[in-house]
Design a protein around this nucleic acid. Sequence first.
DNA 1: CTGAAAGCGCTTACAG
DNA 2: CTGAAAGCGCTTACAG
Lengths: 357, 357
Amino acid sequence: MPETARREDRPADRAPDRASGTRYGNRPTMKDVAARAGVGLKTVSRVVNGEPGVTADTERRVQEAIEALGFRRNDSARVLRKGRTASIGLVLEDLADPFYGPLSRAVEEVARAHGALLINGSSAEDPDREQELALALCARRVDGLVIIPAGDDHRYLEPEIKAGVATVFVDRPAGRIDADVVLSDNFGGARDGVAHLIAHGHRRIGFIGDMPRIHTAIERLRGYRAAMEDAGIAVEDSWMSLGVTDPERVRRAAEEMLSGPDPVTAVFTGNNRVTVTVIRVLAGLPRPVALVGFDDLELADLLQPGVTVVAQDAAALGRTAAERLFRQLDGTHLSPERIELPTRLVQRGSGEVPPSA
Amino acid sequence: MPETARREDRPADRAPDRASGTRYGNRPTMKDVAARAGVGLKTVSRVVNGEPGVTADTERRVQEAIEALGFRRNDSARVLRKGRTASIGLVLEDLADPFYGPLSRAVEEVARAHGALLINGSSAEDPDREQELALALCARRVDGLVIIPAGDDHRYLEPEIKAGVATVFVDRPAGRIDADVVLSDNFGGARDGVAHLIAHGHRRIGFIGDMPRIHTAIERLRGYRAAMEDAGIAVEDSWMSLGVTDPERVRRAAEEMLSGPDPVTAVFTGNNRVTVTVIRVLAGLPRPVALVGFDDLELADLLQPGVTVVAQDAAALGRTAAERLFRQLDGTHLSPERIELPTRLVQRGSGEVPPSA
DNA sequence: CTGAAAGCGCTTACAG
DNA sequence: CTGAAAGCGCTTACAG
C-alpha cells in the first residue's frame, strides 16, 4: 500500500493542515511511530539509532511504522540534546572565486570524513559581514569554524572560542586574538617570484597587489621588497600599487607603470584577479613585458607566452585547516599554532621574458 | 570588568568543566541570564528578540547580564520550537568546479536576502552520495533544497517534499518525480553552436560530451544531431564520443576523431572540462581545427585563437532556482514548472576557423 | 528486553 | 509590563 494512503493515520491533535509550512510541514515524530507500533518512545529511538536490546520482532514492527509514516529523525532535536551539531562553518571571501572552490571542497571532504556537514558563507571581503556570518554560525552551534578573515579584529569570537567553538583561520591570520592559522608562504613565494624576474635580467619590476589591509597583500609586498633589496635595487614608489582588485584600477595601475620615460620591464602581480587583468593589458602592448603572478590560473599554460606563477595549493590549505579543526574537537587541548604551506614557482614563459631595451 | 572574570558566576549545577566539549562547551542559557538579571525567562526572551513590552530599566538589567555571561541565543533550540530553520541545502556536483562557484554564490545571496544560511555539499556525481546528502539535509530540517542531481531517480525525496521541504532542481531535471527545475537551453545552445560551425563551412564535426546518463550531455548531443540534420549532414558514429570527462578519455577520443583518413575538421565540446582538454590536444596539432565549447572559460578570450563558446549564465541559474525556492516557501502553492534560461554564443575565433583542406 | 520521566534551550499561549 | 507552565522532538539516566 502506498505511503501516502497512510497519512490520515497521524494523530489528529498534531499540526493542522495549514498551508503555510509551520512545524516543518506536518511530519511524524518518534511519538507517532511509537503509537503506531504499540511500543515505547525509547524503543523507537533504539531502532532508529541502531542500538542493541530490541527483539527482532519489535524491531520489525517499529520499522514498519517508520516506513508507513515516512518518519525521518529530526536531527535538529537530536542535536539539542546531544550537544554536538556535527556541522562546521566556513566563512570565506567569495564562493565564486576559483581560488576558494578547491579550498571549500577540501574542507567539505574532511568534514564528511568526520560525519559533519558544511555551512558556507561569503563575507564579500566585508569585515562586518564576516562577523555577522561567523556569529550566526555560532548561534547555530556549529562545532567549529574555518574562517578566511576579511577583518583584522576577531575579539568578537573570544567568548565563542572560550565556549568551545573550535576555530581555525586560513589564508590570513586572525586579528588581535590567538588562534590557529594555516597560511601559504606568501612572503617567500613572492620573494622567489620576484627573484626569478631579477635572475632573468630585470631591475625595473612593478608590483600590483590587493588592498593593504589584507595580510596576504602585505606579505607579498614584503617579499617583493626583500627580493629587490637582496639584489641591491632601490624600489621606486611608482612601481608599486596596492588597492582594490577591480579591473579598472588594476588596468590603470599597470598602464601607468608601463608608460612614461622609464617604464618597468616586468610586473609581479599579487593575486589571480590582478594577474588576469594584467595579462589583458600586456596583450595590448607592442613590446614584451615579463610577468610572474601569485596564484595559478586554469589555462595559464596555454597562453602565449604561458604564464609563470607562484602557485598555492588551495586544497591543501583547506584540508590542513579542517584537519586541525577536528583535532581541536577531539578534545586534546592544542595551543594555537601557525602552519605555513610552501608555494611553488611554475615557469611557463612569461616570467622568463628578458627585459626589452 | 572583563567578561572572563565573571565566568564563575554561572550556576554551579550546570555542566562541569570537562575538557571534552559536551554541551557546546559550557554556555550560559537564557535561564542563567534570567537568574542573574533577577527576571523571568520570558523577559529575557523578549529582550533577546527585541519584542516590545519591557521597561527600559528591565531591558538594561537583562542586557548587562547577557554581556557579563557572554550569552548567545542557541538558534538550534529556537528552531526546534519555531518550525523553520532558516537554512537551505545545496547539493551540487563539485564545489571545486568553476561552473558551480558562481552558481553557489548566487544561491547564497538569495538565501541571505531571506535571512537563511546555506548548507553545501558535493555529490561527486555519485547518485548514492547525492541521496545521502539530500536526506541528511532533510534530517537537519532545512527549509528547502536546491539540487543539481547526479542520479536519475528522486522518488526518495517524495516523503520529504510532501512533508513540506521546498525543492528545486537546477541544471538537470529531477528523475521520476514532478518538481521545479531550472535549466539552461542545452539543446538550443548546442544546436546553435554546431550550426555556427556548419555556417563556417564545416561538415565533418566531432562531438565530445559527458556520460550519457547525464541529462545535459544528452540534450547537447541532441542539439548537435539536430543541427547536423538541419544541414543534411549524415553523422558518423566515429564523430561522437560520450563518457567520463577525465582528461585521458577525452584526449583519446579527440585524437581518434582527428586522425585517420577522414578526420573531423571541427569539434564541439560538451562542457568546460572537455573543452580544456581538447584545447590542449588542438594546441599540439600542425593544422588548425575549429572548436566551439559548451560553457565559458576564464581567459578564453586570451588564447590564440580565442575560444568560441556557448555560454551559460551560472549565476542566473542559481539565482532563479533560489528565488523559486523561496517563492515555494512563501506558502503559495505552485505547480512544478520547468524554467529554461537562454545560452549565448560568444564568438572569439576558434569557432570561425575554416575547414583545413 | 522495554519504557516512563526528566531535560536539552528555547518559544507559545496564557494568565496576572 | 511580566512570568509560570507547557511543549518542540529528541536523548539520557534510570528503573523494571
